[in-house]
Design a protein around this nucleic acid. Structure first.
Lengths: 215, 215
DNA sequence: CCATCAATGGACCACCCGGTTAAATCTGTC
DNA sequence: GACAGATTTAACCGGGTGGTCCATTGATGG
């Protein structure tokens, strides 16, 4: 939605563009300020449309927030789909998955912030969003295939768990973004320099690899 | 501050108790709803005092929030001081530290929530709190001593880093609480049952141990 | 026992903010 | 080309919220 002359009494109808315009501005606002900190007026100001439209298309502030959350998860799913692990050895596949997750989260801090914010709300709104089971299943499936192959080849311990593995990968990659501010303030920003992040990423991958490898 | 008959026209002066009363209610409110989601009126309602007192003692809402944050960190420091690692072998000390951190965060979800909230605010308010450098130094010092001893004894790799180790421990233990809601919603709550948490804790400790041990 | 100041309560206020109203303009269709 | 429904605008509103005023009561000390 560009600056398509919304001013004046004359305008063109374009529901899809207006919806997308609002959604984009809302994503930025909610990621920056949280649900209660976000201001509808501020969202509208970053839009080529009017306040009325927000409520016309999304019902209320919380509906808009839910839409933002849903779209954010959908985006992530789309990006994850592009990751191809077929044909890789189990350890190589796992390594690539960890690195991908690390880089992905680093490249999408707004998504991390939205999830952190939603956790403050005890995932109350996430619960009301269907279409997520599917998304989530995909990640676990990927890991389960890796685990099965790893165990079968004797490369991995026989008690590795896809769910726990996902938990570990998420924890490390998520924290790296979500807690950067307080960690940096408390302990300095050395670990967040570009070079240090690359090293960190590889170390984390090896740490996780080490925890699944058969002894 | 108990229900000391604040009603009526007669009352006793007790600044310390009033301050503490407000602070406790504020901690709960901020941890639950965040800075912008918190309501001063709601804080006061959970108090034996009046709204006027909040502003009398803390200036404004943000001042109160800062006080809560500062006190929360001070509490944590106090608890960490009780952890005694002297006399333990480096690996045993590290294992105890990891388990302690895991249990501690689990037992203090409000602190985790406050830190997560402060991260959403990009640690803006944390910056204005002195008295933190000291707190933080203590944790790193503990780890540095463990690392030095571990390297000296040949038990640890020679390139282990206290800061990075702290990062890893924090990431795993913090995520366990901070993201419980969304992780549970997305992937089920199996990992958060008491028994599973105990297993998880020990596995994390071993994972970290594994990552520092000399090959 | 009086003066002074700190501490306190309760009513009050101005503004911010999510949400609404009413009317105008667009667009597809017969 | 006129009708109907969808889309959009600008002005508006009422309650919630952070913050304040003023008067009153406790403590302190000379």
């Amino acid at each position: 939605m560009a600056e398509t002359e919304k001013r004046g009494r004359s305008w063109k109808q374009d529901p899809e563009a207006v919806r997308a315009d609002i959604l984009a501005a809302a994503r930025a606002e909610f990621a920056e300020h949280g649900l209660s900190g976000a201001r509808v007026d501020r969202i509208v100001r970053n839009t080529a449309t009017s306040k009325r439209m927000v409520f016309y298309y999304f019902g209320d502030k919380e509906g808009l927030y839910r839409a933002v959350l849903e779209e954010a998860y959908a985006r992530v799913r789309a990006q994850e789909e592009e990751l191809d692990l077929e044909g890789l050895a189990p350890d190589a596949a796992l390594r690539r998955l960890v690195r991908f997750t690390f880089d992905h989260h680093r490249a999408n801090p707004d998504f991390i912030r939205l999830v952190a914010i939603e956790n403050v709300h005890r995932a109350r709104h996430l619960l009301e969003i269907p279409s997520l089971a599917q998304t989530n299943r995909a990640v676990i499936d990927k890991l389960e295939r890796i685990c099965a192959a790893g165990i079968a080849s004797g490369l991995f311990r026989s008690d590795v768990s896809a769910l726990r593995l996902h938990w570990q990968i998420s924890a490390l990659c998520f924290f790296n973004i979500s807690n950067r501010a307080t960690f940096g303030t408390n302990f300095g920003n050395a670990l967040f320099e570009d070079a240090a992040q690359d090293t960190l990423r590889d170390e984390l991958a090896e740490m996780i690899l080490g925890s699944v490898r058969a002894t």
